[in-house]
Amino acid sequence: MTRQEKGLWVTVIVLTAGVLFMGSWILFSGVLSQDNNKSDLAPHVVASVHDRAITEEEWTSELKKRYGSEVLMTMMNRQVVELEAAAANIKVTPQEVDQELERMGHGYGSKERFLQEMEQQLGLTEELLKAETSYRLTLEKIATADVEIDDAEIDQYLQQYPDQFRPKKQLELSIIKVEQETEAEEVLDRLENGEVFADLAEEVSIDEYTRDQGGRLGLVEEDDPFQPETLMETALSLSKGDIAGPIPLDEGYGVVYVQDILIPEESDENLIRETVRKQLALEQSVSLSELEGQLRDKYGARIIAEPNNQ
């Protein structure tokens, strides 16, 4: 996994959890609100397996059992953050959300590519991503409202970490990994004869991480320390569309396919400084999860009864 992917997976996990919890809530809260009206009706069947029906009530019960407490906590967090933001006159604009998605998209080459990856890999639509991003930005603004970061601190940080915001070339790579050099030669021969790289990767690659994705490694930064040096040296010498090998790896040999090469634009200086300002401010504030707990206490949020299976 690349460095930027590792960073983004943290965000993805948070977003996915939020979507899961809120999605579960939407699914069963709408059903629960109609229970009284349906009490005298036959159970509504939502699915069936062979001759076994799954009713809406069973579905709701399972959702509550699995996700009920988490959904309630998410709902309470949303409400207390909304109350605190209103009290402090804190707002997050659509432009700020778009700007944050642009920043998150840098690890994928572009915002559009990032959104596409999130929907294809995790089923997260742009609408859901925007909702979660807006919530996180609001929480961050609340956390840092009383933290002052001056320009000298930002200058010192940028001097200390000069390469952190330097745009880096990214390569979209796929790989087929085999045990023997002769096997890699055979792979190259089959590719030259017109076989599709992705199909061949699924058939012969021994790399469990990429095999089921047709050998796809994804976007890799030019200095990614998590990829074999021999692989990166070869890939950086190639052009878009090139295939090369055999490449000696720590275990086995590889054939690499450079699907695309992205040369990023220079980052906006003002955006860099604001990113550093927020990062330094968050380091001096309470954690976001701790802040949520403080706000729940402040506004008297509590679970009166644990969700049950009824």
Score class of each variant (00 low, 15 high):
Ala281Gln: 00
Gly68Thr: 15
Ala184Trp: 00
Lys168Gly: 09
Tyr161Arg: 09
Asp223Ile: 07
Leu158Gly: 05
Leu124Trp: 06
Glu140Trp: 02
Gly215Asn: 05
Ala201Thr: 08
Gln180Ala: 13
Pro248Arg: 04
Gly7Asp: 07
Asn270Met: 15
Lys130Ser: 00
Arg216Pro: 05
Ile206Asn: 15
Gln259His: 05
Ile206Asp: 11
Asn308Asp: 06
Ala198Lys: 11
Gly23His: 08
Thr234Phe: 14
Met118Pro: 01
Trp25Lys: 06
Ala281Arg: 01
Ser205Ile: 06
Leu32Cys: 04
Thr182Ala: 06
Val220His: 07
Ile26Thr: 08
Asp250Thr: 14
Ile175Ala: 03
Thr16Phe: 14
Asp51Thr: 09
Arg277Gly: 00
Asp146Met: 00
Thr234Arg: 05
Thr11Val: 04
Gln170Asp: 07
Leu32His: 13
Leu83Glu: 08
Ile243Thr: 06
Gly218Ala: 12
Trp9Lys: 09
Val80Lys: 09
Met232Asp: 03
Ala152Val: 12
Glu195Leu: 12
Arg277Glu: 03
Ser29Ile: 08
Ala145Met: 03
Glu117Val: 03
Gly252Gln: 00
Arg273Tyr: 07
Asp199Ala: 05
Ser29His: 14
Gln284Gly: 03
Lys38Pro: 00
Thr125Arg: 08
Arg211Glu: 08
Phe226His: 10
Met22Tyr: 12
Thr93His: 04
Tyr257Thr: 00
Ile154Cys: 01
Tyr253Pro: 04
Glu202Arg: 11
Phe21Trp: 14
Ile13Leu: 13
Lys130Ala: 01
Arg296Ser: 11
Glu179Leu: 05
Leu271Trp: 10
Asp151Arg: 12
Asn308Ala: 02
Gln170Val: 05
Leu63Arg: 05
Ala198Tyr: 09
Tyr257Ala: 04
Leu262Ser: 06
Leu295Glu: 00
Leu291Ser: 03
Asp212Arg: 13
Gln160Ile: 04
Ser267Ala: 07
Leu101Val: 10
Ile243Glu: 07
Glu179Cys: 04
Asp223Thr: 01
Val276Cys: 11
Glu195Gln: 07
Thr74Trp: 05
Ile176Val: 11
Glu221Gly: 08
Ala42Ile: 07
Gln284Leu: 14
Glu96Phe: 08
Gln116Lys: 10
Gly7Lys: 15
Asp151Ser: 11
Asp150Glu: 13
Tyr108Val: 09
Ile247His: 01
Glu84Met: 01
Asp51Ala: 01
Leu129Ala: 01
Ser267Phe: 12
Lys91Ser: 13
Gly218Arg: 03
Val204Trp: 02
Asp163Gln: 14
Val10Gln: 08
Lys278Arg: 09
Gly30Glu: 10
Asn308Thr: 14
Ile154Met: 02
Gln164Trp: 12
Lys240Thr: 14
Arg190Leu: 04
Tyr299Cys: 00
Gly300Ser: 04
Ile261Arg: 08
